[in-house]
Amino acid sequence: MPVRVVESSSPSQSSGQDPNSGHASPPSCSLLSVGRCFAGTQNVSSFQKDEAWKVNVRIHGCDLEHGYLCGTMEALNVPLADTPVVTFWEGEIVDAKNYTFFTGKWEATPEDDIKHWSKFQSFTPLLSQIEADGGKSLDLSNYPYIFMRWKEQYFVNVGIDCGLTIAGFYYVCFSCSDGSISGFYYDPNSSPFQKLELKCSNGQQLGFTFSSYELQ
C-alpha cells in the first residue's frame, strides 16, 4: 500500500538471495493461493493524528519453489486520492533456500530486520537460531507461519506523480491456520512500524472458494 511522500529515496539493489542452502520449501498452504483475497487495514498514524486506511490484497501468483509471490494491494480511503490506489507488489518468501530473514537491500540493515521480525510473536522461537547461524539451518517446511517481504513495484491505476510513495516494503507474517496476515511497513523516510492487518476474505460467499489458472 502506498504511503504519503515524505522524501524521495532510492533503495539499494544488492541481492538478498541465498541459493546455497538446500532446505525444503515452506509449507504449501491452500489459503495462500492465487485468486485469494484478504481485507483489513494499515495503520498510518503519525505524531499529528491517528489514521488507518482500509486495504484489500489479492494474490496473483505463487511459486514456492522460487520463494516468489505477487499480487495487488488496494488502499481504499487514501486522503487526497480520488479513487482507491492499487499497487502491484512482489513477495520474497523466507525459506532459507531462496531468501533468508536478512533483507540485504531496500535500506534495511540486519538490525532493522530483527527489530521488525521480532514484532511477530511467531518469530520468537526462531530468534536464537537466527542469532546463531543466520537461520541457515532452520527448517520452516512444517512451521505454521510463513514469513515474507512484500515490495510494491508500481502503481496500477495512478501515475507516479500521485503524491504517494512505494519506496518501502513490508515485513509480513502469514498464518497458515486461518490465513490472517500481519505486517509492518518499513521505509526509513516514513512513520515507523505502520501495522498491516488482514484477514482472509470470502466476500458474500458462504465458504472458501478457489480459482486457478495454469501458465503453459
Binding site: 505477487c70 496500477v156 501458465l215
Partner: peptide, 13 residues
C-alpha cells in the same frame, strides 16, 4: 509470446 506472457508482473500490469 507464450513465454513472455509467463511474466506475472507484466500480466498484472
Amino acid at each position: 509470446i507464450k513465454n513472455i506472457f509467463r511474466s506475472l508482473k507484466n500480466l498484472s500490469a
